[in-house]
Design a protein around this nucleic acid. Structure first.
Lengths: 185, 185
DNA sequence: CCAATCGTTCAGTACGTTTCGAACGTACTG
DNA sequence: CAGTACGTTCGAAACGTACTGAACGATTGG
């Protein structure tokens, strides 16, 4: 029965719709991507609106967000004034872009604030209180520094290399500290 | 002037309050943690409410969320019926817990849905359409698989080892493909 | 040049989430 | 046994965000 395909589609649409907040986008936006991703042919804005059961206006707005994240491409056929949309299929590339365009700036802002706060605390008049606050802020900054380095690296490194690297690291760790191996349920 | 310390505190409170949504908690919750983190002594619920300029009820709710994430500990002194709260200071430990208790389950649910969807698509009656959908879902699942492996690893691995590892990987990459080195602004 | 079709915009609205604050239960004090 | 000092709970309000639907400009074909 062809019905199975329909259900498969519907389920992915729901799945991506649900975890849309993870990417930092609206529910419709996630579902929209799912629809495009599972469509063999590029779709027009009206097609998508129908498939999602929502308004064209909504789709227009959502799709712009996806374009901005590099998750959707726009394609125009000569002699056809409709605009066709199709999904980007390289998820590692998508992740990189989402990370760098959405998460990273936010992270950087926060980082700068912590830095500034630390500077202020260090400049304050010496006291037990001052030393305590400065030390805590120092620890926090150190953490942010490391995290920042990791994120920056993930943005540059090849995902397959990353996978291999981590697997290798895991092997070393397992053989070093076997007590931490996961207990089979 | 002692004022600098006060401002340093206020700035961190604001910083963590702002990026609170990153951890998946409310604004007050992030600010609350900042207050506790910069307090030399453990604080009672009333203290915190005063410091934040919010209600005790609000703090009570928020602090429970932080406890559940392992970001705050509760401590009772014998002969004092007040409850004191103090911040967890090991951020790597915190990250691990937040990741495993909040992000991971959500991720797993989504993962299962994709898996199920793929199963359904593969079971559907063969056709061009069916092959296309099955292939796309297969790619998505492969991506999720890799991602899942990475997350699982990060949850187990020692952060310092991770940092060293990534730095090493970056060095290799830089020397291999110097053209990708970042252009100094 | 008109009608139809397409994507975009925006003000209004519906919805979910966060926050407040009063009421409550409990445990200690005198 | 009051009275007080806690932390908790919960309904109501405030708030922000996502969505709707009509109006609009642009483009194309008749």
């Amino acid at each position: 029965m062809e019905d199975a395909l329909v259900r498969a589609r519907a389920e992915l649409v729901e799945a991506l719709g649900q975890q849309s907040s993870f990417w930092g986008v609206g529910k419709v936006t996630g579902a929209l991507f799912a629809v495009l991703y599972l469509s063999a042919e590029p779709m027009t804005l009206g097609d998508i609106a129908d498939a999602l059961g929502t308004s064209k206006g909504n789709v227009s707005t959502s799709i712009r967000a996806l374009e901005h994240l590099g998750m959707v491409r726009r394609r125009v056929h000569p002699g056809d004034r409709r605009v066709y949309f199709e999904a980007e299929t390289d998820f590692w590339e998508i992740s990189r872009r989402v990370l760098s365009r959405r998460q990273k700036p936010e992270f950087d802002r926060s980082f700068a604030l912590v830095d500034q706060s630390l500077g202020r605390a260090r400049a304050a008049a010496p006291s037990d209180e001052q030393r305590f606050v400065a030390e805590r802020l120092g620890s926090l900054k150190a953490f942010y520094d490391e995290l920042d380095g990791i994120v920056a690296l993930v943005l540059v490194i090849d995902p397959r290399r990353l996978g291999r690297l981590l697997r290798a690291a895991a092997r070393v760790r397992r053989s070093t500290r076997p007590s931490l191996r996961r207990v089979p349920q």
